[in-house]
Amino acid sequence: MNKQEALIDYCLRLGDNSLVLGHRLSEWCGHGPILEEDLALANIALDLLGQTRNLFTYAAAVEGKGRTEDDLAYTRNNYEFRNALLTEQANGDFAVTIARQLFYTSYAWLLFTELQKSKDETIAGIAAKALKETSYHLRHCNEWTIRLGDGTEESHRRMQDAVDSLWMYTDDIFAQTEGDALLIKEGIAADAATLKPKWDAMIKETLTKATLKMPEGGFMMKGSREGKHTEHLTYILGELQFLQRTYPGMEW
């Protein structure tokens, strides 16, 4: 993998993360447990889609083959997506959605904090912008984790179940490729291996405040960087890509 291919792959990784998670969150629209949460989740989804657009536009420009952000979103196949397995997991109950937010957003916050310093100016600009939004998302999921964990017996049980059930997808968030190593050496990408201990500390702090147990060890599912996904992604793409697959090039 050369530097150009590595950069495209890296942008797709980050852009696919926010696209797929944004799609998941938008599924809550009209179904939120309370009106304020309906708005909050839709707002976060919107920020994530905005981040995706910036990253896809850049990936398409680096590729230089005339593909657009829409082509990247609507015409790639399941095995060409690079999003972390966590982001495609189903919404479940509200606690599952919050646990997924906590795991992803803590990572995104650390990542964008690092990427602001990227030697690639476009990446640095996208990251600086995304970081501001991510700070709000982080506060949102931290507050809810604590409220549910340290709430009633029922909310505590559900929040702990959610944390436990998604734990197996957390290592995959930090998966890296040879291409990443190339970009890290050039000061373009952030080294996920150095983010992991910081992420562990952040998660531990919030879970402790929420009177929840931090899971330890256990089986870890991996494969997203090689395009090996859980069954959920195919269903998301089926819905997301339906129109462009059925009526290619359709505009309105």
């Binding site: 949460e37 708005l39 909050a40 919107l46 949102h140």
Partner: peptide
């Protein structure tokens, strides 16, 4: 504060 997220991305309730 009622919610950090309001009627548009730039506003809180």
């Amino acid at each position: 504060m009622i919610s950090q997220f309001g009627s548009t991305a730039c506003k809180a309730l």
